[in-house]
Nucleic acid binder design. Structure first.
Lengths: 157, 157
DNA sequence: ACGTTTTCGTTGGCGAGACCAATGTTGGTC
DNA sequence: GACCAACATTGGTCTCGCCAACGAAAACGT
């Protein structure tokens, strides 16, 4: 009837719903990041990886967050100019650049982290806390199944 | 510990999990579409919308599946060359092109539909049927909340 | 009846993201 | 010492989503 309704073949597909939901999440995070002065979503991933694992080579950094080495280079260069991290040659292996987060970068990460947390809240607003946990658990299982990664916290029990 | 593990700040976020899952679905569908001779994912959406609602203008078509008018033009042109649809000027409103699906297009849609269905199965393999229903229901609620659309089948009770 | 506004299809282009290739440098291996 | 692998960097391609502008045509307001 409604000439503007979404085709049933789309709206019943989990893949389409996942794409729509992921788009909303991207949009919410993008808006908040942009307000914080960041154009790329990967900056948060980079800073988070750095904060959690100390000085790292750019290649490891990219492998960890699923970013191409070339894209890591560009992002690290920009973040370096902002004073969020330092890039120094590794004295042990002179092929590598040791990237370490600065205090300024940690403060910026905290700011972005708050924005990201707010985006979660906004995205999952129509779901109860129990449902959100359920959703995260199911998605974790699906991602683990297809990537072979272990995302579950096996260490914190 | 593991130097290649995903940062906790990412793997615990619903937005990141949704993005990862959507990417997997995206990849599965892309592979199957490519095998069927289609490079763009929007072709399925277009054919589905046409099959479900009869002859439509390109603008309505785009609004329905969330595609820009310019991109609709390119896709319709290609699908027309493949013989999947016909594009004729609307005698009532001569600004519009009436797009209608051909029998060949319906057969192609059926083929793509089978591929898409297979991708669902592959993506949600680690979930039980009840969990899949739950996931779809929750995602539907989230998408409805953010888009204002009514995706639920209110007509089929 | 007529000027204004809106809609339509089309073309062209922009920017972000993901990906790939080549290059020069350095480490490791045999 | 020769050969291969990994690193960071540059530069390129391709897809998507989006926007701008255009001419044609319909709808609207007075």
């Amino acid at each position: 009837m409604d000439p503007l309704s979404t085709p049933a073949r789309l709206r019943d597909r989990a893949t389409w719903l996942l794409g729509q939901t992921a788009n909303q999440g991207h949009r919410l995070i993008g808006e908040r990041m942009h307000a914080a002065g960041v154009t790329s979503r990967s900056y948060f991933s980079l800073l988070a990886a750095l904060a959690e694992s100390g000085p790292t080579s750019q290649a490891d950094l990219g492998r960890r967050i699923g970013l191409d080495r070339s894209d890591v280079t560009a992002a690290v260069t920009d973040l370096e100019h902002r004073g969020c991290l330092e890039r120094t040659p590794d004295p042990v292996d002179r092929r590598r650049n040791l990237v370490r987060i600065t205090e300024e970068g940690q403060a910026f990460l905290a700011e972005l982290d708050a924005e990201v947390a707010g985006a979660q809240e906004a995205l999952l607003a129509p779901l109860s806390p129990a449902e959100r946990d359920q959703l995260v658990e199911m998605l974790t299982r699906v991602v683990e199944h297809h990537t072979g990664l272990r995302l579950s916290d096996t260490t914190e029990r």
